[in-house]
Design a protein around this nucleic acid. Structure first.
Lengths: 108, 108
DNA sequence: TGCAATGTTTCCATAATTTGCAACATGGAG
DNA sequence: CTCCATGTTGCAAATTATGGAAACATTGCA
């Protein structure tokens, strides 16, 4: 069948795709406190630096973070605070609905 | 390497994954107006009813929509309006950042 | 009962994503 | 300059996602 979905929705989907991985969500939450380098994030999420770098590249491409080199390090920082509100929305409504429906106990 | 990402972030990622497809974003926007049946949505997004049904199943599993049978039809409706705010956030900040970065390189 | 309309599930092929390893690039120290 | 630390990119394997076709399920109606 022929696709008829306007481009606007593809752009939105790309943005959400950048958030559609536990490691990337975790990274954003860590960057909420303060900027961090790749090696620090890699250690925290338990991935090779190459994998961490690729996740950060996706977040950067989507516009959620920016990077700046400091010596041998590359520091990443959060630039789209509204993503936190999005996550909050998730916690407050979506996951709540899901818990009720599936009877999953809440987690802090 | 061993994964050390808390379950909380996996749950959030699952929710965003449900939004990480143009067809599903399009569906949610259509449901914003009024509830619709599977066949209507399938025609609008240009997919077979089976594919449309699977997309709706994912949205339902994530808690964004609910379904109710009406005769031979199955009507889907939006139950998490905050998803619209999330999309608005996307339009307003993320995509704007991206435009600046891709079209005006070298500018802070 | 039989039949049509609508949805869901299953199977399969194709495409996209993710990861680690290795190679390469960049910057600082000696 | 060389050596080392940090990041990025290329590659291949494994995993996951997607879509169509067909089978199956459910409802309404004659």
């Amino acid at each position: 069948m022929e696709p008829t979905i306007p481009r606007k929705y593809s752009l939105r989907a790309e943005m959400f795709k950048a958030l559609a991985h536990p490691a990337r969500i975790y990274i954003l939450d860590k960057l909420r406190e303060r900027p961090r380098c790749v090696c620090e994030l890699a250690a925290e999420i338990g991935l090779e630096k190459s994998a961490a770098s690729k996740h950060l590249s996706q977040l950067k491409e989507a516009g959620f973070v920016e990077d700046e080199r400091r010596g041998t390090l590359v520091e990443y920082r959060l630039v789209a605070p509204c993503v936190l509100d999005m996550a909050a929305c998730a916690e407050g409504t979506i996951l709540e609905n899901r818990r009720k429906r599936l009877e999953i106990p809440g987690e802090g």
